[in-house]
């Protein structure tokens, strides 16, 4: 197996998309750093990825809501990675988020505050070094707020805007930022939901799209995993608000 000598840090490594993405990088010859809240679960994925690919895989404990520890975490990494991929996401429950402030806050902090603060820290280091790629997995739900999931959507919209600003700032410094909007994905997060086949990607497909956008097609800044989402979301974004507010989407 040809090792590239490059390394990637995966945040949210125990999710289905995180797992598939880590394996894609490992198979391409990258060293992989996996971060997650439960070290035991992260270790299980690390063993799997290491055994399947023969890659070097290290595990690191990270709670995305515990920003006080971010600096120590980054200093504890074996090397500052070439690429950081954040696939952290918490769909939550919309009706609960409407009634329980605590739940709404958890969704907002997990999808926006934590990832943004962490990637902001990484951005400084990448800018100082003069290279590095940040991949943020955001969501089509952030393209326009809808009654069915606007708490999650708003957090993702914030994250999308943050990544956009980060890209604007880092381009001059030689670092890249890629925003990925997967659309529907068949994962544990969506298990039991009825998903339209044409719009629904497999985790492996998302991983392939992330790797291609971040490492191969270096001109891509913002991607939808399935291209059909682009015209679809363009239409949804362009519906006038007086009409949109009456729609059930």
């Amino acid at each position: 197996m040809n090792r590239t000598g490059k390394s990637v840090l995966l945040l949210g490594a125990t999710s289905d998309i995180g797992r598939a993405t880590a394996l894609t990088y490992a198979t391409a010859g990258w060293d992989v750093q996996l971060a997650g809240r439960h070290l035991e679960s992260v270790q299980r994925e690390a063993d799997d990825i290491g055994t399947r690919s023969g890659a070097n895989v290290s595990v690191h404990r990270l709670d995305i809501l515990d920003s006080d520890r971010f600096s120590d975490f980054v200093m504890g990494l074996p090397v500052l990675p070439d690429t950081v991929v954040c696939v952290i996401g918490e769909l939550g429950e919309q009706d609960r988020a409407e009634k329980e402030l605590h739940h709404a806050s958890l969704v907002m902090r997990t999808n926006f505050e934590g990832p943004a603060l962490f990637l902001g820290l990484i951005a400084d280091l990448f800018a100082a070094r003069g290279h590095g790629t940040i991949v943020g997995v955001s969501s089509v739900a952030g393209d326009r707020g809808r009654a069915s999931n606007y708490v999650y959507g708003a957090a993702k919209a914030g994250f999308t805007a943050f990544l956009s600003g980060l890209r604007n700032r880092l381009t001059k410094a030689g670092a890249r930022v890629v925003t990925v909007k997967p659309g529907f994905v068949r994962t544990r997060m969506t298990a039991g939901m009825k998903l339209p086949g044409l719009l629904t990607a497999e985790p492996k497909e998302v991983a392939g799209a992330i790797f291609a956008a971040a490492e191969e097609k270096r001109s891509r800044d913002v991607i939808y995993v399935r291209s059909i989402w682009w015209p679809l979301m363009t239409v949804i974004r362009s519906i006038p608000e007086p009409l949109f507010k009456r729609l059930k989407l």
Partner: peptide, 11 residues
């Protein structure tokens, strides 16, 4: 349904 118990451990 045991497909999810599907991680490789070591070689």
């Amino acid at each position: 349904i045991c497909r999810g118990i599907g991680r490789m451990k070591r070689f």
